[in-house]
Amino acid sequence: MAAAEATAAAAAPLPVRDLAVVELGPLPLEVLLLALLGLTAVVILRTRELFPAALLTGVFSLINAGLFTLMDGVDVAFTEAAVGAGISTVLFLGALSMMDRSERQRPPRWRALLAVVLTGAALIYGTFDMPSYGDPQAPVHRHIAPQYLAGAEAVHIPNVVTVVLASYRGYDTLGETVVVLTAGVGVVILLGGRRRRRSAGVGSTIEAGGRDGG
């Protein structure tokens, strides 16, 4: 409770209105999706066949997208569905087409497991003092967000997310676009020099550099 008061105090600039804090208990659907998410993760870890594992990551992303939708993060859900469940699954499959399709048997990695458990524990520990989900008094909702809402209204752009991403934090988005560019450059550097031989015919194999060794 002390923490909650502290967060409220941190959000001082706005008068603390006596809002009825809606206790949004976990909805049944959310619990279901979360359980499914966990299950999928465990199955991915246990699968030695890489093909189903790759497909399951798509499923994982879809469930995630569902969760995001429930949390009103429609834009994020949209992205997650398109990238996580769509493109990256295809890319996984493409990558798989050039390697062994099953994982070699490996001894369990205790150090990795320990690291994961520790990280998870830390994360859960960290949630204890978080503002409640949907708490209108949370700093996130009281400090800067009102300005964003007002700003979006002033320029008549209903989707605040777009205004924040493209204008207020437009520079971040430029950065993200450059991240995408970087990924593209990286892939072209590593894989782009290779020629498709079977379908493109003989001609392309003798292009300058031939076997570039990407």
Binding site: I87, S97, M98, V187, V188, R195, G213, G214
Partner: peptide
């Protein structure tokens, strides 16, 4: 990215 991954074949080992 799709071109890079989708057009590869198991026999086209990196040179």
């Amino acid at each position: 990215l799709y071109y890079a991954f989708g057009s590869l074949h198991p026999d086209s080992e990196p040179a």
